[in-house]
């Protein structure tokens, strides 16, 4: 357990600002971070502040004004096949069936139909959507849509999976169920997961480590190591509650 952990992704002095109404607004300020291979890293932060921006930068959807992202020691420019993403919501293409959505990655990469079908089917089965391959997204519930999103990201076989508040719009019950799902899938198919949330309980339930971001502009405030909190975790366990309170006391309120 205590052997040296391999760093797979490195953020170095990432900063991002925008010009809004002719005023410069800083969204992310000097964030440096090391992410270990196969860990479940949670990025926890208040309100609408910097978390999604950070994800977009790692995914190559936007360029930071300062700093760089390194994957396996090499600088990442733009999007990279080794980094996948589960989007906040509504990112399933409504004109595609579940199968067509899930196999989209390999399809645009030019993988032959038979081969990509096989991979897609594997992950559709893994997320528990067997039998829904031909359904359209509008026929699915919110939780099922997110499963499709997860299967789609896995099918491209990325080394790192970014999950940007994937369960933010689900109701509480479905959300708990999906948190368990995502852990089950992760235990089965180990990848490095970077999971963004604004929910402290979700963060403590899921994370190997939690990176706590400050209020705007986002800076790394504290990193919590939860390796010693045994899985499966129980949200009413005293140790769980102690960590939860500790993080809660340290969190900036975004009002």
């Amino acid at each position: 357990m205590d052997e040296k952990k391999k760093v797979i992704l490195k953020l170095e002095h990432i900063s991002q600002s925008y010009v809004v109404n002719s005023q410069v607004k800083d969204a992310v300020e000097d964030v440096s971070l090391e992410v270990y291979d196969n860990e479940f890293l949670v990025i926890l932060g208040p309100g609408h502040c910097g978390k999604t921006v950070l994800m977009n930068i790692i995914a190559g959807l936007e360029k930071p004004v300062g700093g760089a992202v390194y994957l396996d020691g090499e600088q990442v420019e733009g999007s990279d096949k080794r980094i996948g993403m589960v989007f906040q919501s509504l990112a399933l293409m409504p004109w595609k069936t579940v199968m067509a959505n899930v196999e989209f990655g390999p399809e645009v990469a030019g993988v032959p139909k038979e081969e990509r079908r096989k991979t897609a089917q594997k992950y559709i089965d893994l997320v528990g959507l067997k039998g829904f391959e031909k359904s359209y997204p509008h026929e699915l519930s919110g939780g099922m849509k997110q499963r499709v999103g997860i299967a789609r990201a896995y099918t491209n076989n990325p080394e790192i999976l970014l999950m940007d508040e994937p369960f933010g719009q689900l109701d509480a019950q479905t959300r708990y169920a999906m948190e368990e799902e995502v852990l089950r899938i992760w235990e089965k198919e180990k990848r490095t997961i970077i999971f963004v949330t604004n929910n402290i309980e979700e963060a403590v339930y899921l994370g190997d480590r939690i990176v706590l971001l400050s209020n705007c502009p986002a800076k790394v405030k504290e990193i919590y190591d939860l390796k010693n909190l045994a899985r499966p975790r129980n949200t009413t366990d005293p140790e769980f509650l102690r960590i939860r309170t500790e993080i809660s006391d340290n969190t900036d309120l975004a009002l």
């Binding site: 995914a59 959807l61 999007s79 989007f87 509504l90 990112a91 989209f104 645009v108 990469a109 491209n156």
Partner: peptide, 12 residues
């Protein structure tokens, strides 16, 4: 929708 284009970008 920009989000669909973003999905495309992430999948290269």
């Amino acid at each position: 929708e920009q989000i669909y284009l973003n999905v495309g970008t992430v999948f290269n």
